[in-house]
């Protein structure tokens, strides 16, 4: 590759996670990968490959039943794996945003979308009144929602799946993070909406300078959106590299299996 050497926004080095208990199974085995600044990195793997756990481990939100055995998570030049929960809270939402698979259940059903996005802003900075409202509407607008006022006043159940997912992304980017972790963001959407949401990710990368970790089981999604890909199999990285490279000339058996499965 030509051009200046790209700085990594996130670098995961030798991350191992396993279930607590006497004969706890390993969920992640010495996982290492980099997220270069401004790139979309796809993390692919089948069910149980540990891709969701990986996302949670990066944000320090592992379930109580899991423990991090080793590994460093270097974000913005600092190892955040040893951060206290108070230190992590400052980073979460403000620096690292996260979007989930099921926007229906990821929104609190008793609060309006606008109130929940505003809440994210308020968790990190002091804002109020019209300024806060404008922040919320701007975030909704930049995630491609054409009538942000209506969406902000709506309850989650009043929106379509696509709109909800966009609102979810708006909540993730409202504080202007530079890394977005999207966990199966399109799995619950139809093909058409899927494409639009994926285009939105590409757009956001350019307009906001976001780096994105796209966690998915769908190779098509990765091929369409990501620049780099990390293939996870039962907690281990079996292959990683440039998307075209990996998906056209796969080395690992597992990657080939995934590709073949896609053909069916």
């Amino acid at each position: 590759m030509t051009g200046p050497v790209q700085e990594n926004i996130l670098s995961v080095q030798g991350l191992s996670v396993r279930l607590c208990g006497e004969n706890g199974t390993d969920i992640l085995r010495s996982v290492s990968f980099d997220v270069p600044s401004g790139m979309i990195v796809g993390i692919v793997g089948g069910s149980g490959s540990g891709k969701t756990t990986l996302g949670l481990a990066v944000t320090g939100l592992l379930p109580a039943a899991m423990e991090r055995l080793s590994g460093r998570i270097i974000y913005g030049g600092r190892d955040i794996s040893g951060f206290s929960s108070a230190e992590m809270r400052v980073i979460r939402g403000a620096k690292i945003g996260m979007a989930f698979q099921e926007p229906m259940s990821a929104f609190d059903p008793v609060m309006t979308i606008g109130a929940q996005i505003a809440e994210t802003v308020l968790a990190h900075e002091a804002a109020s009144g019209p300024a806060l409202r404008e922040r919320v509407l701007a975030a909704l607008r930049s995630s491609g929602i054409s009538d942000p006022v209506r969406v902000a006043a709506a309850y989650p159940f009043e929106l379509s799946g696509g709109l909800r997912q966009r609102a979810m992304i708006a909540q993730a980017i409202v504080c202007g993070p530079n890394l977005l972790i999207a966990d199966e963001p399109t799995s619950s959407l139809d093909i058409d909406t899927q494409g639009k949401v994926l285009d939105l990710f590409k757009e956001l990368r350019c307009s906001l300078g976001l780096s994105i970790i796209l966690i998915t089981h769908d190779l098509g999604v990765v091929r369409r959106t990501a620049d780099r890909v990390v293939v996870l199999c039962r907690g281990s990285v079996v292959e990683q590299g440039d998307v075209r490279q990996v998906l056209t000339f796969p080395h690992a058996v597992y990657t080939r299996t995934l590709l073949e499965a896609e053909m069916i």
Binding site: R89, I91, G93, A94, F100, A106, M111, T120
Partner: peptide, 26 residues
């Protein structure tokens, strides 16, 4: 265990905010 509680945590809300705003109202 609801998703929106995990979501609220990923957005950096404190435990107290989560309890008061996302758990007790239910």
């Amino acid at each position: 265990e609801r998703d929106y509680v995990l979501a609220a945590r990923t957005f950096g809300l404190s435990d107290l905010q989560i309890i008061v705003r996302h758990i007790l109202p239910h």
